[in-house]
């Protein structure tokens, strides 16, 4: 399990932005998993710089985690916080769906 934690920087304009805890379940370098990782990295850079913690779980390495989290299909993104918990299944190719789940719909790109 790799953790990628970014803390908000002082003086940032994203002061009101809540802290995001995301868990992405992937399967090695399968195409949909790679795509989901890329999409999420892009979203983080655009909107969540400094206010998110992303855990990427490779089920090839940690299969039990997938069972524990009751994951059915890979890739799956779980938005653990802010509550309520949300689950997105698939390669995150529809950006609107993801932004909606993160409550970021209509938000300006963070500069």
């Amino acid at each position: 399990m790799e953790a990628n934690i970014q803390r908000p920087e002082t003086g940032s304009s994203a002061g009101k932005t809540p802290f995001y805890r995301l868990r992405l379940f992937v399967a090695g370098s399968e195409p949909n998993s790679d795509k989901a990782k890329a999409v999420l990295a892009n979203l983080r850079d655009k909107y969540l710089r400094g206010c998110c913690e992303i855990n990427v779980v490779d089920v090839f390495e940690n299969y039990q985690a997938a069972i524990d989290y009751q994951i059915v299909a890979i890739p799956t993104l779980i938005v653990e916080s802010p509550p309520p918990q949300k689950v997105i299944v698939g390669s995150l190719s529809n950006e609107d769906t993801v932004l909606d789940a993160l409550g970021l719909a209509g938000r300006e790109v963070q500069l």
Binding site: N32, S33, V59, I67, V72, A73, I74, P75
Partner: peptide, 23 residues
């Protein structure tokens, strides 16, 4: 969640399906 899973499956956005009782 089930609907989302099925929908992702139909779109071909799924790499793996994980059984509940056995891996």
């Amino acid at each position: 969640r089930a609907e989302a899973t099925l929908s992702a499956l139909r779109r071909g956005e799924v790499d793996l399906v994980i059984g509940e009782t056995q891996p």
